[in-house]
Design a binder for these strands. Structure first.
Lengths: 146, 146
DNA sequence: TATTAAATAAGAATAATTCTCATTTGTCAA
DNA sequence: TTGACAAATGAGAATTATTCTTATTTAATA
């Protein structure tokens, strides 16, 4: 089932006249494989075993490209200096554990509607929105009790 | 009316046994005066005219302290490397202009309820949440048309 | 007003990211 | 297939944001 997304990715690159390079495939694959919203550095390290000569510059530039093309999302959190990346480009929201800094995706139709008038939105032309939820994850709740 | 908040701030520091220094007052004042969600560097520059010897380290440490004490909030945005600070510690949300990177606070009771069960929240113990809205501000909408 | 812990200044150190430019690699047309 | 060429990459320098270190200064309070 992952095969499909890689295939799609290759098709996408072809359509957009973006060269399909080993590095780009590896970076995209690494993002698909992770549910941890990895940083550029995380991805760099993951890939290094297969591509010992890969450069950080390539990772950064590639992630920037992917985001510009709308196939991934860059996300950031207070108290974390490095940006994280998310291979799920669809609308979804985030559960952030304030103790262990884990980030989980959360999809729920209830969160996808913005029940506000244009006026209430200060006349902004809205593109999208994301709900960031701070909390304590089940694992950290258990730790606390122990 | 701003006088009140400064007075409150001083009271607060006293209660918490935090020395009331010129630097702390200036930093808090600078945050109150700005609606722009300034960065540490912005605040450093603002204060420099009155306190030519102020150090960046002081600004950073002070902002960190204020946040730990709950009187300000640290916020961060994708595509912006520097953290921003917000003197409004109450629950509120953000309108982010993707073109000019302006950030406006948005308060609306409709946004303050999370209509989800504990289960839908992956059993997180929720602390709070913030709705981040991406859009185009009125000024940039006009620019585009012109 | 003297004491003392807390806070600050200055700049070095670190972390994250971007830039530069010489070299390598996909792509596409012949 | 191969050759040409634009696109992409690698290596490391440069930049930006932030944190750390330490000697000096200052606010609180007795």
């Amino acid at each position: 089932m992952e095969k499909n997304r890689i295939e799609e990715f290759i098709q996408f690159c072809r359509r957009r006249h973006l060269n399909v390079t080993h590095q780009r495939l590896a970076i995209y694959q690494a993002l698909l494989n992770s549910t941890e919203h990895p940083t550029a550095e995380d991805i760099f390290r993951t890939i290094q075993s297969d591509y010992p000569t890969i450069s950080r510059a390539t990772v950064y530039k590639t992630l920037e490209l992917f985001e510009r093309e709308g196939i991934i999302r860059k996300v950031s959190f207070p108290h974390e200096t490095a940006a994280r990346y998310d291979a799920n480009p669809q609308r979804h929201h985030h559960l952030f554990c304030v103790q262990c800094h884990r980030v989980e995706d959360l999809s729920h139709p209830q969160l996808d509607v913005l029940p506000l008038s244009k006026k209430a939105l200060n006349n902004y032309q809205v593109i999208d929105h994301i709900v960031h939820i701070n909390g304590i994850c089940p694992a950290c709740q258990r730790k606390k009790r122990a």
